[in-house]
């Protein structure tokens, strides 16, 4: 097991699924204890996997996983499919609205297994 795998508490709710369920350079959605988490897979980046809450706080719908991923001024982002605001994949920060932020979660790949925890990573 890697260090990353050990760093979350055994009691954190998690989702485990196959790498083949991911979509290269795009997002999918997983459900963990009724929390919707958008998971993005950028195979050439490091880290290669990012997990954000799926709720678009500006568009007010569960759609972030359907956005286009890319980068803006070097920051990895997903663009909301509704109104195109950018959310940082690393911090959840909205680039257009300073006060808006979506939760980001721990995510990692070991071999063919993907693990997402509801442990949110704090960036403030």
């Amino acid at each position: 097991m890697t260090n990353a795998a050990l760093s979350h508490s055994p009691f954190d709710p998690i989702a485990i699924f196959d790498r083949s369920d991911l979509q290269e350079n795009a997002g999918v959605c997983v459900l963990i204890n009724d929390v919707q988490v958008a998971v993005f897979y950028l195979p050439k980046e490091s880290p290669s996997i990012f997990a954000l809450h799926n709720w678009d706080p500006l568009g007010k719908a569960n759609v972030l996983y359907r956005g286009i991923v890319g980068d803006l001024n070097g920051e990895r982002v997903v663009a909301s499919p509704l109104y195109k605001q950018h959310f940082s994949l690393d911090t959840g920060r909205c680039l257009e609205e300073e006060s808006v932020c979506v939760p980001v979660y721990e995510a990692f790949i070991e071999g063919e297994t993907v693990t997402i925890t509801l442990q949110s990573r704090c960036h403030k």
């Binding site: 290269e24 795009a26 759609v63 286009i68 499919p81 509704l82």
Partner: peptide, 22 residues
């Protein structure tokens, strides 16, 4: 196709038109 899919805008991506509630 897998190499084209990540390029498509929301609507093209799911071959349908997204509405306000997703």
């Amino acid at each position: 196709k897998p190499q084209h899919l990540p390029l498509q805008d929301t609507n093209d991506n799911f071959l349908a038109n997204m509405q306000k509630d997703g």
